[in-house]
């Protein structure tokens, strides 16, 4: 199993970690259209980041599916949070929308000088994108973006557990072949 691939001197890696407790320039939060933080990682952002993030979001939402916006990360280990609104619960054109969401997150990161960014397996888990599909789309879309030339130097995909990690590793293996 592969944990890392090099793409034009950039690194794409996967590891098991808590995305909301990672030292990094920015991480992607799979957000709601109204940009309310809600539970799960949103709860972790509210608890670890403090009230700043929520306050910044008040002036940014609501946004459309596939949009991405950036805020600071309050008191968290990361410096910024990219709030990316991906497709949810088997909605129409999920694959297309998911790719676009990832691309928009990367673009927002790059235009804000982010060099090192963390992604979750986009849309999997609660929002119901099948894990294999999520792993494929997340890794391929990021790899393609890095291949086309980017100021982003490192992307890490944070898996919550082994169940999430394995399909991501398999996808990286395919990319490295």
């Amino acid at each position: 199993m592969s944990d890392k691939v090099q793409i034009k001197n950039k690194t794409l890696s996967v590891k098991q970690c808590d995305i909301t407790d990672t030292e990094i320039d920015a991480f992607v939060f799979y957000a709601r259209n109204d940009l309310k933080l809600g539970s799960g990682f949103g709860n972790a952002i509210a608890l670890r980041g403090g009230p700043t993030v929520r306050k910044e979001l008040e002036n940014l939402g609501p946004v459309n599916v596939t949009d991405a916006v950036i805020t600071t990360a309050g008191g968290m280990k990361a410096k910024k949070i990219i709030h990316a609104v991906g497709p949810k619960f088997q909605e129409q054109d999920t694959v297309k929308k998911l790719k676009l969401t990832i691309l928009n997150a990367l673009k927002v990161a790059e235009s804000n000088g982010v060099e090192k960014i963390a992604f979750p397996p986009m849309g999997s888990g609660f929002y119901g994108v099948p894990l294999d599909e999520s792993a494929k789309i997340t890794t391929e879309t990021i790899a393609e973006y890095l291949k086309n030339g980017s100021e982003i130097k490192e992307v890490v995909i944070c898996a919550n557990d082994n169940r999430e990690l394995k399909p991501l590793q398999e996808q990286l293996k395919k990319l490295s072949n």
Partner: peptide
């Protein structure tokens, strides 16, 4: 919705951080 997301992402039903 609230509780499911806590358990999916934080790993427990009540969003208790490590």
């Amino acid at each position: 919705e609230y509780v499911s997301k806590e358990q999916w992402e934080i790993g427990n039903q009540m969003g208790v951080l490590k």
